[in-house]
Simulated scan of single mutants.
Amino acid sequence: MAIVTPDLTAAAVALLALTIVSLAGLRGWRDWIQLKREEMNSGHAALAHDPGVPHAGSRIEIADLKERLRKLEAIAAGVDL
């Protein structure tokens, strides 16, 4: 007859918990991918961004690039910021 030790029990519980968390994460990932596929197929992703109006993130990136360019020009000119 096998004797189950507390260490073996703890390891089994930890493995079971890891399995449950992994399966839940995998299910969430698959559902998220399916949601993105449905958005792409329905056209909502394409309609969310009007090509005539820049996206807020791209405006921020452009402003950031302009600021970096200004700093690099100042460095090249020898001006101490």
Rank of each mutant, 00 (worst) to 15 (best):
I3D: 05
I3M: 07
V4T: 05
T5Q: 06
P6Y: 03
P6S: 01
L8Q: 11
A10L: 04
A11D: 01
A12S: 06
A12H: 00
V13T: 08
A14N: 02
A14M: 02
A14Y: 01
L15T: 03
I20W: 05
V21L: 10
V21C: 06
S22W: 03
S22Y: 02
L26E: 03
L26P: 00
W29D: 06
D31I: 03
W32D: 14
I33D: 04
I33H: 07
Q34S: 04
Q34V: 06
L35V: 03
R37L: 08
M40T: 08
S42R: 10
H44D: 06
H44C: 03
L47C: 02
L47P: 00
H49D: 13
H49S: 12
D50H: 15
P51H: 00
P51L: 00
G52F: 13
V53Q: 12
P54Q: 14
I60Y: 14
A63R: 07
R68L: 12
R70Q: 12
K71Y: 06
K71P: 00
K71M: 11
A74D: 03
A74M: 07
I75W: 03
I75M: 03
A76H: 04
A76W: 01
A76S: 09
A77H: 03
G78Q: 01
G78D: 03
L81W: 05
